[in-house]
């Protein structure tokens, strides 16, 4: 059961408390927190698709990347005079802006593209796969191939995508000077607001009849179909919504990290995104956010101290959580609460 009012109260409460972080945390820590809150937005989408829809995507990095690159392209174009091309294109010998870059100079187009490009790509992709009744493990494998293909394409199209280094060195976004004193705080609050809205939105979606239908499809897709519903539609919508959240997360992350590159969108990062949610609890929105923050802060601490240990720790975490605690931390906490209540 999904209690919507309680979700709204919790989301508003958490966001309210988190809004004070800029007065407590230093610049570096605030930046980290902001990055991980952006990633949490993506995690909400995984709860929707995987937790409630039973759709495992190993390619969320693609949609994250589409959103990130859309905004990054806009930021690369903003400071340019007419006729100029971004620095990396000059190095690559390009003299004119490629046609598909041009519309990203418009801020409205770029902002829409951040969510609509991932959403449309995801919807078409999911329609072509789910529409043919291909799902489950097959879908997971195809999404992984998608992540590999996307990252490879980005690297190989060096002169128009920045290649392996990606896009970086941004100055200004929508009039906000990224090197200014207030930039960190402002972007943090924007991220927090978007996350809170995303949380409330996904919670509403899960509590609606759509959420019930999605869980029904997860439990028995054929059954739902024979009862006269178009089961694929619910999976396609869930996947597209998750992709839009991933796109917004990618754009926000790019703002905080100051870079978007193929290393953030490929096979390995895409599958790591799933573990954040697995640890927090795949059906719980709050759990997914908590899991994302916990894994990423831990990862940051381990990576700087013992870089060799990270793959071992991450790998072991995957195995242990999936085999021993499939409900994640949320389930552990819920069980504890039930015990107390008794």
């Amino acid at each position: 059961m999904f209690r919507l009012k309680r979700q709204f109260v919790v989301a508003a409460g958490v966001a309210g408390v988190a809004a004070f972080a800029p007065f407590v945390l230093g610049g570096y820590d605030l930046n980290l927190l902001a990055r991980f809150l952006a990633l949490s937005l993506l995690a909400l989408g995984i709860v929707l698709t995987w937790g409630h829809g039973g759709i495992l995507s190993l390619g969320q990095g693609v949609f994250f990347g589409l959103g990130g690159y859309a905004l990054a392209m806009h930021m690369k174009l903003t400071p340019l005079a007419p006729g100029e091309v971004p620095d990396f294109m000059m190095l690559g010998g390009l003299e004119a802006l490629p046609a598909w870059w041009v519309p990203f100079g418009n801020p409205g187009f770029a902002l829409l593209a951040v969510v609509l490009v991932p959403g449309i790509v995801a919807a078409l992709f999911a329609w072509s796969v789910f529409g043919r009744r291909v799902g489950g493990t097959y879908f997971a494998l195809i999404t992984q191939a998608l992540a590999l293909a996307f990252a490879t394409l980005l690297v190989s199209a060096q002169e128009t995508t920045g290649g392996f280094n990606g896009l970086t060195d941004f100055q200004v976004v929508l009039g906000l000077d990224l090197n200014g004193a207030e930039a960190g705080r402002t972007l943090y609050w924007v991220t927090l607001l978007v996350l809170a809205l995303g949380w409330a939105g996904v919670a509403a979606l899960l509590a609606s009849r759509f959420g019930t239908m999605l869980r029904a499809v997860r439990d028995g897709e054929n059954r739902v179909r024979f009862l006269g519903h178009d089961a694929a539609a619910y999976k396609i919508i869930a996947f597209a919504v998750a992709a839009m959240l991933a796109g917004a997360a990618g754009a926000l992350f790019t703002l905080h990290a100051g870079v978007i590159s193929p290393a953030m969108v490929g096979v390995v990062p895409s599958i790591e995104m799933v573990i954040w949610v697995a640890i927090g609890g795949r059906t719980s929105l709050a759990g997914a956010i908590a899991g994302t923050l916990a894994v990423n802060f831990a990862r940051d601490a381990i990576s700087s101290a013992f870089p060799d240990l990270r793959p071992y720790a991450l790998g072991l975490l995957f195995i242990l959580v999936v085999t021993l605690l499939p409900g994640g931390l949320a389930e552990l906490l819920a069980a504890r609460f039930r015990k107390v209540a008794r």
Binding site: V274, D308, P311, G315, V322, T323, P326
Partner: peptide, 23 residues
Amino acid sequence: RRLSARPLDTLLATWGLSLILQQ
């Protein structure tokens, strides 16, 4: 064997194993 009824979880657990083996 422990995960045989859960194909998607098997994907994730064995991916964790793959990370460990690579490292």
